[in-house]
Amino acid sequence: MFKFIFKRILEAIPTMLILITVSFFLMRFAPGNPFSSERTLPPQVMENINAKYGLDKPVFVQYTTYLGNVLQGDLGPSFKYKDFTVNELVADALPVSAKIGVVAFVFSLIFGVSVGTLAALRQNSWLDYAVMSTAMLGIVMPSFVLAPVLIYIFSIGLGWFPAGGWMDGSWHYMVLPVLAMAMMYVATFARITRGSMIEVLNSNFIRTARAKGLSYRYIVLKHALKPAMLPVVSYMGPAFVGIITGSVVIETIFGLPGIGKLFVNAAFNRDYSLVMGVTILIGFLFILFNAIVDILLAYVDPKIRY
């Protein structure tokens, strides 16, 4: 098991290097820069600015310097917010996104798996049909449709929850963003769980367990749940990626000061170093999470380990 984990982490390193390289050169070859905007600065000033941010050196030197800094956890100064480093901006924004993302992820996992299991246990009953058609709605209703609808109903109509804002993460500011973000993954987890649960319950070893006279409850919880979780665990990676990506839209709609909003603003402002920093950070999270999922999969399914 430790060998597997070690190997998996080792494999992530080249991926990370490629990601950093790709985003670095993408930024360097993009037309326009944050200083060439409204008025043309005197050439001396431009030279000074370029020297300050190291833009006067050859591209390769810039690249190695940047790579070295990133490896030490330093994402450099922001081009637009001149008094801040990228690290400071990210440190402000990350907790907001993390809080919403983690709550949405845990909620969709727990709720989706339990609803899916229920539907599988009562296959073809009205409960099953109700759950599955709601799930289909959840899958086809993108978060940027669901979010305005939720705001319309619960903020403008009923006035239960605020339509946006953060207020240091007080819970009723979190309800709508989390719901809008999680719905699609609740639905997907429910569908996946139902499918694999039905398949597992029809397999031979469950029949044997029944023949031994074990209680139904014991069979489901002790025997069926673990193998049925296999496709659920492998969907955790894409779900995590989707939730992070979705945060761009959700944070824009609800006006939350998170990573997604920071990223969109940075892209619009052509703040190279910030865009690069956020892309690398998110890529790092993707890689890390994919590695965790693989390790989890290996834990659930011994076939992968050997």
Partner: peptide, 15 residues
Amino acid sequence: SIPFMFLVIVLVTFF
């Protein structure tokens, strides 16, 4: 492992 949606956003805003 590459966050494509983010790269697309970058591409679209820059190019």
